[in-house]
Amino acid sequence: MTMTTKNLRIYEAIADADAMAASQRRELSPKQLRESRRIYEGIRARVDEFERHMLDVPSIRPSIRAMTRDAIVARLAELGIAHPTAVIARPGFQDLPERDLRTALEAAECALERMK
């Protein structure tokens, strides 16, 4: 190994340590602070849009769209016990993606409403 390779490692380690210290101090110029704000707002908008897209299934009622994953799983389990012949909850349904869980709950609620 050449001295340059060893020095490269040292150089990288001290550059990283120096940058970590600057990072802890949030050492940014006013221009960079504005840029950071723009980056954050751009990412937040993209993430929010993505999440809306994932959850926005028109046929699902707003009350189900507003539920947390745990609440959906609990409601599906509850319906499965109360109406075992009407609600088809396949084994391991708790592991379904959230979008599928909402769809399953909407289908189950619709089926029960038709029975009434």
Binding site: A19, A22, S23, Q24, R26, E35, I39, V47
Partner: peptide, 21 residues
């Protein structure tokens, strides 16, 4: 978790790191 941890303070922190590097 990404959505929960993505804050403006986080972009400040990581951008400061990137800027120094």
């Amino acid at each position: 978790a990404f959505s929960a941890q993505m804050t403006n303070d986080l972009t400040d922190e990581v951008l400061a790191y990137a800027a120094r590097r």
